[in-house]
Design a protein around this nucleic acid. Structure first.
Lengths: 232, 232
DNA sequence: GCCCGGCTTTGATCCGCGTCAACCGCCCCG
DNA sequence: CGGGGCGGTTGACGCGGATCAAAGCCGGGC
């Protein structure tokens, strides 16, 4: 296994910017792991023993109330970083949505390595700041948007992120046709809606000719302009 | 003006962990600024020319839709860091809720300084990770909690944060009595509710003897247990 | 091919919260 | 002391999305 493989495509991975020697050292403390769809990687409130780097696949970060309501608070795509370095407990559960390959590190090992490699910490900081930006714009959606706006925003975001992370046939710009890594229930958990509402909104957009739904999880954006207008 | 003053109480400020020489260098590129209640510090989508460190007061971070709906996506207390280093545009507006004192830096100056001082970047990373955790648990609230749960959660969070940032008479643990730095409308903007719903829920809690409302913005928690139970 | 089970869609109804509107009370200022 | 205005409260009502229920669809196993 080459160092490049363990640590993902070099240019996009967490280790981008490290020199060869550093990459080798990082690989020494990491382990590859396969996680199949539906399998958990980290449980909410556990000791946060792991951090990881996504190589392939999509995973969800969730928090739940005691009575079982779930909210997806983040989605990790290839090259994304998962887990909570420098903290006692993980505040979110991580579960694979598709079969996934990740590179896991013990939190202690990773923390120690990061602290002595400023380039890595800088990269991590940039990623965390970007994630915070995304999360904040999602708060706007959860707190203030209507169901149709939520669905439209969601579809547009999916078409962008799936394209840029290479989860769809490579095209320039956002994808017009893609396969959702989510079930209807999971879409509901992302948007703070119920499964029935999600289903109804999808059907409505299809009837209006804005999108097409060729298969359960497949979406084709027919009229992107309309979607942008609906997104609010 | 001593270096300590410019850069906030040493132990809690962004510069904690820097040596004296570094603190002096950081002070050289920062400027004190007073912001009065209601005054903006950064506008949404501007060029993100500023970053800042809060010395005193409380500020809100907001995003808005074109048609004027507003969502408060973060609240900055003393010692908190504001702005978006290493990014092109700021995604949120920053407006003071109370009269505030901040230490502002030009983004370029700050970026350059941070990149050459790993201790500062590490501190910034820890803060950003903590903020991300808080933001994610707020997503759960926005997406899945009912109005009574939102209000209860909000009051408990306020009682903790206002105590730990020294915005209330110092006590051990969470404050039982405090002054909200928010108007009713702003509470609504934090929780994704309307002003009327916020008002009704406050009144309900008062009638049930869970809290007392001695003045417009003052809250006294009478029955914390009940509040915790309601928070969901 | 056929059956079974889980996911999804669709329909009917309900209710929490938003909306619209009026009123209240505190504070400022004359 | 007496307006006036702003922020907050209260009430009446309606709607969007949740809830409850049932049927449809599709994929997998035999």
């Amino acid at each position: 296994m080459s160092s490049c493989e363990t640590c993902v495509v070099r240019n996009r991975a967490i280790c981008a910017g490290l020199d060869n020697q550093e990459i080798t050292a990082l690989n020494a403390i990491g382990r590859r792991r396969n996680v199949s769809a539906g399998e958990p990687l980290i449980w909410e409130d556990d000791d946060s023993l792991l951090v990881a780097n996504v190589i392939e696949g999509v995973l969800k970060l969730t928090t739940s109330t005691e009575d079982g309501r779930e909210q997806i608070v983040g989605v990790a795509y290839p090259s994304d970083f998962i887990g909570r370095p420098f903290g006692q407990t993980s505040k979110a559960s991580v579960v694979a949505l598709t079969d996934a390959r990740v590179c896991v590190f013990s939190r202690n090992d990773f923390d120690r390595f990061a602290r002595s490699h400023p380039g890595l910490e800088h990269k991590l900081l940039e990623r965390t700041l970007a994630e915070l930006d995304r999360t904040r714009s999602w708060m706007m959606l959860l707190g203030r948007k209507t169901a149709p706006e939520k669905i439209a925003t969601f579809l547009l975001e999916m078409s962008e992120r799936l394209a840029e992370t290479g989860c769809t046939p490579i095209t320039r710009g956002p994808a017009t046709r893609f396969t959702l890594p989510f079930s209807r229930q999971q879409v509901a958990d992302v948007l703070g809606l119920t499964i029935e509402t999600v289903s109804r909104q999808f059907t409505k957009l299809k009837n209006e000719g804005v999108i097409d739904l060729p298969a359960r999880r497949d979406v084709e954006i027919v009229n992107r302009g309309a979607l942008v207008a609906l997104a609010g």
